Amino acid sequence: MRFGMLAAALMAAISAPAFAGDSPQQEKSMAKDPKIAVVERQIEAWNTRDWAGAGAMFADDAVLHSMMIEPINGQKAIAERIAQLGDGTESIKLDVRNIGRVGDVVFIERVDRFVYKGHAGAVPVVGVLEVEGDKIKAWREYYDRAMLVREMGLSEDFHKAEGE
């Protein structure tokens, strides 16, 4: 009897998709997800170096938080920070590996590839974005800060150099 139940459970597991995203229908619905679409527009703004557009996609009371430093609060301050980083960025590609959504939160695994003031670099990143309507309410970034600074060709963290 136990063997029969075990065999039935095993057969059900083998015949079921291993992951909900395995079906073409699931992939189509993810592509049309409005919260993921907001994040994809943000990625496109970075990839095209549309710094004003990237900054404008944040809510007035948004928070941008690279987890190793203090958060940046408010759309205006976030837009200013993005513009500052953009000044030295000759090229950038946010190379998305995985993107998905749980509730209002979009998770994105990526490798940021860039040329910053003549220095080519690449840094693996995980971003966690809270999206409300067509705006980003919160963006938390997880990456190796020392690696970013090194890949940018800087001798010290630009955060410290700015006295923040």
Rank of each mutant, 00 (worst) to 15 (best):
F19Q: 11
W139M: 10
G121V: 08
L94H: 15
N73S: 15
A56I: 09
A161C: 01
Y116T: 03
K137H: 05
D33P: 12
V105G: 13
F19P: 04
E151G: 04
A146L: 13
A62C: 15
E40L: 15
R113M: 14
K137R: 15
Q26Y: 13
F114R: 07
A62V: 08
A7W: 13
A52M: 02
R41H: 06
G88T: 01
I82R: 03
A56D: 10
M5P: 01
M68L: 10
A7V: 07
T48G: 12
K93D: 09
E109N: 11
D60E: 08
A7S: 15
G121A: 15
R41C: 12
M57E: 03
N98S: 15
I72H: 01
I78C: 04
P71T: 04
L10S: 14
A77Q: 09
G53R: 14
V96Y: 00
A16D: 07
E162A: 06
H65W: 13
V123S: 02
A122D: 13
W139K: 02
G127Y: 13
D33W: 08
I69D: 05
V123D: 13
K137F: 12
N47K: 14
I99C: 03
Q75W: 04
K137N: 14
N47H: 14
M152T: 01
R49M: 01
R81C: 11
D22I: 03
A62D: 09
V38I: 15
V126P: 00
L85C: 01
L129C: 08
G55Q: 04
A62P: 05
F107N: 09
Q42M: 09
V149P: 05
I43Y: 10
S66R: 07
R41E: 12
R97K: 13
V96E: 02
H159N: 02
K76R: 10
R101K: 06
N98P: 01
V149F: 01
R140I: 00
A138H: 14
I108Y: 07
V39G: 04
W46L: 10
N98T: 13
L154M: 03
N47C: 15
A8L: 08
K160C: 00
T48P: 11
M68G: 10
E90T: 12
N47D: 15
V131L: 15
G55N: 02
W46E: 01
W51F: 09
T89Y: 00
M57Y: 12
R140M: 02
Y142C: 05
Y142P: 05
M152C: 04
G121P: 11
S155A: 04
G163D: 12
A122H: 10
G163R: 11
A9I: 07
E156C: 00
D87T: 07
A62Q: 05
S155Q: 13
R2T: 04
A146Y: 06
H65F: 11
Q25P: 08
Q26S: 06
E40M: 11
G133K: 12
G100Y: 04
T48I: 10
G4F: 14
D61L: 13
D33L: 12
L6D: 15
S66W: 07
M68Q: 02
T89L: 08
M1E: 01
L154P: 05
E162Q: 00
A77T: 12
A146W: 10
H119D: 11
D104K: 07
P17S: 06
